[in-house]
């Protein structure tokens, strides 16, 4: 996530120009603080939409691994679920059920010995998922050490040189060692 920080220069002047939208030339609103009052939703939409036109074109971006296209039907389903909180499993039991089915589908796909007992969950991305995997490894190791009467205070992990920065991010979980 972008961390707003005084060391990062702010973009532009303190005022955000509203012109030339909707013949409002000359009108400005504050860029870094809340405007005094309300504005019509169409104007607010247009200001944000127009500013985002400066972002790169995802179709021409061969840098990212992240999906930049989905079918309209998927987008429609997503729009229908923006307001459902994953953690409210009691309120949204079918969303929770679909998560459970996805875990079973992946367990089968990856040849888990007993996919009927599929164990796993969704996360915000693969970094959080990798960290949860690391936490489970660390706890298993601590239990083994405790059972052997040995200290569990200096865990390490082994990774290759091409390990992504997420394994450095989990350094508080264990110390990565690379060849």
């Amino acid at each position: 996530m972008t961390l707003a920080h005084p060391k990062t220069p702010r973009q532009g002047k303190d005022e955000l120009g509203v012109a030339p939208l909707f013949s409002l030339e000359g009108m400005t609103i504050p860029r870094h603080s809340l405007p005094d009052g309300e504005m019509p939703p169409d104007v607010a939409y247009q200001i944000v939409h127009d500013e985002l036109m400066l972002d790169g074109n995802a179709r021409l971006n061969v840098a990212t691994f992240v999906s930049t296209w989905m079918e309209p039907q998927a987008e429609k389903l997503m729009a229908e679920c923006f307001d459902k909180n994953m953690i409210d499993k009691d309120e949204y039991p079918q969303t929770a059920e679909l998560e459970t089915r996805c875990v079973a589908i992946l367990s089968n796909l990856w040849h888990a010995p007993n996919a009927d007992e599929a164990t796993g969950c969704s996360t915000t991305g693969s970094s959080e998922a990798a960290m949860l995997g690391g936490l489970a490894l660390k706890r298993r190791w601590q239990k083994r050490r405790a059972a052997d009467g040995k200290p569990g205070s200096s865990p390490t992990t082994g990774t290759s040189r091409c390990a992504s920065s997420r394994w450095r991010a989990s350094v508080s979980t264990s110390r990565p060692r690379r060849p």
Binding site: W110, T119, T123, S127, A129, G133, A136, L137
Partner: peptide
């Protein structure tokens, strides 16, 4: 192999942000 993670929003073909972690069995997740 005790656990596998993947990114739903990379080749899982979904918009960002979803990932998955699966353990081999219940033993692998204390």
């Amino acid at each position: 192999v005790a656990s596998i993670n993947t990114s739903g929003h990379k080749y899982g073909l979904v918009y960002p942000g979803v990932g998955w972690i699966i353990w081999r069995d219940t033993e692998a997740l204390p």
